[in-house]
């Protein structure tokens, strides 16, 4: 069973199962004629293939909730509503979308459960989040003693800032927590971190490039290997948090297109300001 971002979990009894293959005309027989190449499924292969379908569906419409609701507050037949408005100003806000292609294989996101994104970590910290505000790691729900934050160049200084705030919050929750920041050896990053040293006692900053992350058998801790100017060092953490590149949500991009606004104008992190389109404003802060 695989758990993927933004996907609900079903459990399956038949995974993995290869795609059934269709018959094809051999390559040698394709020259000098225009005969059909893809020959389609045989019947049993078709049925086998069809059985792979997960029959995706969320609410199954069984009505048990309605049967349980004394207030009769559920209406399965409710229809979508259309509203037409006419307004003088439009303010677009940015939200918390992240680019998910960033944590490449080498950071192990998706493979190692204790590697979380900054947005996931925000949920972990939040009282309203999945763990009721308890700082625990996603693999076994244990309280971490040592967390590594990886700030990548793609993430930029904005993402670093967000991570710093998370680190402060994490310290508030678990006093003895050790935190290390891994960031590119560049002034912008280091300055941003230095500004905050006082606020996060116990923080260490490691400059350089993260080479690889390995999961430790059993403990599921993460062994992080990084290099600075050729020196390679290894260190073990209970949990890793990745800074992700912020991204405009799809619906904002769509809206900007409709309004004829160049999306490069919509600067993430910027305060409220008017765009080149009169009457349309954009707030880039979270």
């Amino acid at each position: 069973m695989v758990e993927e971002r933004k996907r609900y979990i079903l459990e399956f009894t038949d995974i993995p199962k290869e795609r059934q293959s269709v018959n094809e005309l051999p390559v040698e027989q394709r020259i000098n004629n225009f005969n059909q190449v893809d020959l389609g499924f045989a019947e049993d292969a078709a049925v086998e293939e069809a059985r792979r379908c997960l029959s995706c569906r969320r609410c199954l419409g069984c009505g048990l909730c309605l049967a349980e609701c004394d207030k009769d507050a559920i209406d399965f037949g409710q229809a979508d509503e259309m509203l037409d408005l006419s307004v003088d100003f439009v303010i677009l806000t940015h939200g918390v979308e992240r680019v998910y292609t960033l944590p490449s294989e080498k950071f192990g996101y998706g493979r190692y459960v204790n590697v979380a994104t900054d947005i996931e970590f925000e949920r972990i910290l939040s009282d309203d989040g999945p763990y009721g505000g308890m700082l625990i790691r996603p693999f076994d729900g244990e309280i971490p003693a040592k967390i590594g934050f990886i700030c990548t160049e793609e993430g930029g200084v904005d993402a670093l800032n967000f991570a710093i705030h998370e680190a402060m919050m994490a310290k508030k929750k678990v006093d003895s927590l050790e935190i290390a920041f891994f960031c590119p050896d560049e002034d912008a990053y280091v300055k941003e971190l230095e500004r905050n040293y006082d606020n996060i006692p116990g923080i260490t900053v490691k400059r350089g490039v993260v080479k690889a992350i390995r999961e430790v058998q059993g403990s599921k801790n993460l062994c992080l290997e990084w290099s600075n100017k050729g020196d390679v060092t290894e260190e073990e953490f209970n949990m890793i948090v990745l800074s992700m590149r912020p991204q405009l949500p799809g619906y904002i991009v769509e809206l900007a297109k409709e309004l004829d606004i160049d999306i490069n104008e919509l600067e993430i992190g910027a305060l409220l300001k008017e765009t080149s389109k009169k009457g349309v404003f954009f707030a880039g802060t979270m």
Binding site: D72, A73, I74, F76, Q78, L83, D84, V87, D88, F89
Partner: peptide, 27 residues
Amino acid sequence: KFNIRIKKRASRIIEEKCDDCKACIEV
């Protein structure tokens, strides 16, 4: 002016009646 069309997707809950008793979630 900006003319805007909004689609409000059905929540299938009658908000005024719901009193947050969580009975539905349990079952």
